[in-house]
Design a protein around this nucleic acid. Sequence first.
DNA 1: CATGAATGAGGCTTCATTCAT
DNA 2: GATGAATGAAGCCTCATTCAT
Lengths: 195, 195, 195, 195
Amino acid sequence: MATITRAEQKSETRRRILDAAESVFTEKGITATTAEVATAAGVSHGSVFVHFPTLANLLTALAVRFGTRLGDMLHTLSEGNSVEDFLYAHLSILGEDEDLYLFFLRNRKLLPPDTAADWLAMQSETAFHFAKMMQREIDAGRVKDVPVYFLFNSWMGIVHYYLENRDLFAPEGNVFARRKSELISSYLHLIQKEI
Amino acid sequence: MATITRAEQKSETRRRILDAAESVFTEKGITATTAEVATAAGVSHGSVFVHFPTLANLLTALAVRFGTRLGDMLHTLSEGNSVEDFLYAHLSILGEDEDLYLFFLRNRKLLPPDTAADWLAMQSETAFHFAKMMQREIDAGRVKDVPVYFLFNSWMGIVHYYLENRDLFAPEGNVFARRKSELISSYLHLIQKEI
Amino acid sequence: MATITRAEQKSETRRRILDAAESVFTEKGITATTAEVATAAGVSHGSVFVHFPTLANLLTALAVRFGTRLGDMLHTLSEGNSVEDFLYAHLSILGEDEDLYLFFLRNRKLLPPDTAADWLAMQSETAFHFAKMMQREIDAGRVKDVPVYFLFNSWMGIVHYYLENRDLFAPEGNVFARRKSELISSYLHLIQKEI
Amino acid sequence: MATITRAEQKSETRRRILDAAESVFTEKGITATTAEVATAAGVSHGSVFVHFPTLANLLTALAVRFGTRLGDMLHTLSEGNSVEDFLYAHLSILGEDEDLYLFFLRNRKLLPPDTAADWLAMQSETAFHFAKMMQREIDAGRVKDVPVYFLFNSWMGIVHYYLENRDLFAPEGNVFARRKSELISSYLHLIQKEI
DNA sequence: CATGAATGAGGCTTCATTCAT
DNA sequence: GATGAATGAAGCCTCATTCAT
């Protein structure tokens, strides 16, 4: 019947700790403690270290899990879409985990180098699709002939800027939900060729 | 006449501490300790707290001083210049204190709210000149008719993006020195109307 | 007939744990952990506590088993032999388990009092044979007329001294193998009467 | 007047911590904690780390201080004396700090290598005087012609053996006070030539 | 005002031990 | 009996802050 194996139990606990870490670090920032994570997860302090031998290890695991989740979602971004659809989809994805995304944006320097590399690799795929799509638009004469990598960097820069300053742009906390269309249409206006 | 008044003595010490804090926090990041600041300043650990009752207070003072310095420099930015000159001057200014600017960019959340407000106010002036200049360009039909605040946000976003990822764009550490012209010309290309 | 009874199974596991404990404690010293013992034994961490409710209990069991093994070997020491043969045999026996012997020599204070008593009792038998043999030599005028218990204590002291300082006397780790003859002949020279 | 400078104050505290460490480690053995030391010293837990950044560091400092103290005393041992006087003086010295000596005897493996080397160096001087004195006795035909280093090792071995087993030889805790003469006379009897 | 020794709350981590499966 | 995830007490160490000199 609904028997739960020990292995399931274990990964369930691991998941709870990661979930707790996610919400605690998201809320309190990098100064959150392992004890707070334990409490939020409803497990003993020691349990945290059974699953993650080190705070750095926990953060890394969190980054990896989030990176995978985000990567999977970003995977669905295809160069086939229109620019608008692409950007819209991109922001929708980031918007799903806005808080966590911001956390890692701010604390990326704390991650071990190899995790940072994973992070980058993930970013790269988005960049790849973005570039392909944009190149097509440029070739079609719909977008200005600016290096595509610069188009990508601009987009990311703008997106991050709005995120970092979300308290200005969306005091209630969810920038993208609020500013998505505006952000996209302004950006489009910027990059598109005039007729 | 070479007498040094007590008040001078005091403000001299205060300055040394701030200078030390600047270099220490810049080098070691937010994990630097007050003891390290004291050592770097060549004063006792206690002296730090004579002048700045609290770490937060020290950081705030540092932010304020830096903000003022930056503000003064930014003050010279005038809407009278060409866009290119303006942007060039802007990056030159930021480039002077690239490390410290990045430090506050990354750790702004640690500052007390009112300092954050100062920070913003300072930013505003730049924004004001930027907007005025850009509006002129728009009116003259040289720049696209995008809301000027979005032009400003884009510019800042791009600039910050290059800063945050300086290890990618300029491994040796000084992004603006290396990428200034490229960044500006690409940005210009983006915002300018085609002829 | 190859059936293994539950009792056999149990004692087999117990033996494996003790074996593992022996090698782990011998190698890593008293700071070795129960988890390491479990791993070395190829059993679960919990199993260790099924057989030995307490770390102290495990150490005691180890001491008892080693004591018995050593005792059995020492048992073969007979007062019938020549002094030289006796001492040679003694060192050969200790040399068999030099590492473990040293471990208990160093950590005897951690053992519960009653185990220490066992330890002593075991020692006693050697002392008994030693004394008997030595008395015979004294009576025969071949050995100095020193209290036999002092002769025993001297011998043990010297032996332990070489063991404790084996890194000086035999950097490769096996003192007795290297210094046995020298140690014995010097000691003999010391206690024997001149002709 | 009786003004106490800050430097004096500091070294006074350092001394109190070392004194406390001495008594605490002596009493409770190596399992004593830094917190216990702090309490015994009447200072805060943090203070211990102001003076000794690390537990290992504290133990080392303790070893060094004790080594110096012991070394200074052993320094007074001169090869000019009679064997009996020499050994008597030696045991008197060890007897002064019997507990601490035993602590380091048992836990020497915990000391960093260079401290262990100091320890050895100190021992060496005693060995030197011992050897010189003994050689004279051998040359004079009063002591058996055994290698002097073996005579030294025997003596140390015996002394340490009595120390390690002091609960057997002197249940009240002070072996040397109780057994000094007996130990010396037996040892002398052992090494001396019969007439 | 400057000093720097002292404080103590709080963080991360370890590990013997327990207990439900 | 065997398992191994979970526990939680306890240890070492850090560091902003205080205060007597």
